[in-house]
């Protein structure tokens, strides 16, 4: 096993493209090291990206948008007050991952690239409209979240692609997002269903923009455009919530496994969608944080 710790993303990409066999980038390592020790993977090449300058920076730009370094940990995100005020859903989704110890290492990019359909931060990144800089030997391009997952444990990134930055849009006026997951316990568990919703309202409280996403109910994260459509032009009345729940359940394409049945996931997706929408709506109204 070869271990590298390059100082630039270009070098990281060059190492990855040249590597033979199984390659893993090492961000927080909370997936990679666990899988290595459990004999799930045996990488030939490990490329640690934490020594690249700026990978832990959280930057707010003049237009209100954000750039996060790819090794920013969940704990660093949660402690950033302004980021939490702008994107409470993204921050709470990331914060649900693991324990205090895991929070000190785990990253958004690792969560996405590990490829778990149940990854908690991914639905929240989808509804926030997050994009990534992806660097390879030809340069750097921008890719939307939805374009990265390919299936359980797989992404559309090519050999030699390394994610070099996380971009979160500006919050804008009267907006709010939220993420809820269902787990049988109170913590330290994997989502049986996850739901993120991001809303923007007009001055009268009518929803003008909406985005709905589900995790753990299909091979990859889902963006529910029909469910979002159902919200636009409405306040969050009961009829709208029912429509949302029906659309959310209808969009599910889950499996039955040790964590939950098809029937259960499909039903709970609707329940969570309603509950998440209420939180996001209250946040958009400025009633809660």
């Amino acid at each position: 096993m070869q271990y590298h710790s390059p100082n630039t993303f270009e070098d990281a990409a060059a190492l990855a493209v040249a590597a033979a066999g199984v390659t893993r980038f090492l961000a927080g390592g909370t997936d990679v090291l666990v899988q290595l020790r459990a004999d799930i993977i045996t990488p030939d090449t490990v490329i640690d990206i934490k020594n690249i300058p700026g990978v832990r920076d959280i930057t707010r730009h003049d237009d209100g948008s954000w750039t996060l370094g790819v090794a920013t940990s969940g704990a660093e995100m949660r402690e950033h007050v302004e980021l939490g005020l702008d994107w409470p859903g993204v921050v709470e989704a990331m914060d649900l991952i693991g324990s205090t110890q895991v929070q000190g290492r785990a990253t958004l990019v690792g969560n996405l690239c590990n490829g778990s359909p149940a990854a908690d931060s991914v639905p929240a990144m989808v509804t926030a409209g997050v994009e990534f800089s992806v660097t390879n030997s030809e340069g750097t391009r921008r890719v939307a979240v939805m374009d990265i997952p390919a299936g359980p444990g797989r992404t559309h990134l090519a050999q030699g692609d390394v994610i070099s930055a996380v971009h979160i849009p500006a919050r804008g006026a009267r907006g709010g997002d939220a993420y809820l997951r269902f787990i049988p316990r109170t913590e330290m568990d994997i989502a049986v269903v996850g739901c993120a919703i991001n809303l923007a309202l007009d001055a009268a409280g009518v929803i003008t923009q909406a985005s709905v996403s589900l995790g753990a109910v299909a091979p990859t994260v889902l963006r529910l455009d029909e469910a979002a459509e159902a919200l636009i032009g409405c306040t969050l009345d009961e009829a709208t919530l029912d429509k949302l729940a029906t659309a959310a359940s209808a969009a599910c394409n889950p499996i039955s496994d040790k964590r939950g049945t098809i029937e259960f996931r499909t039903h709970v997706a609707g329940v969570l969608a309603k509950r998440t929408a209420k939180i996001a709506y209250a946040r958009a109204q400025g009633v809660t944080k």
Binding site: R185, T186, E187, M188, D189, I190, D257, K258, R259
Partner: peptide
């Protein structure tokens, strides 16, 4: 056996 780790063999955690 499908759940041979503590992640999926769910003993109560303290907060439960």
């Amino acid at each position: 056996l499908q759940n041979s780790i503590f992640l999926d063999y769910r003993v109560p955690v303290a907060s439960d």
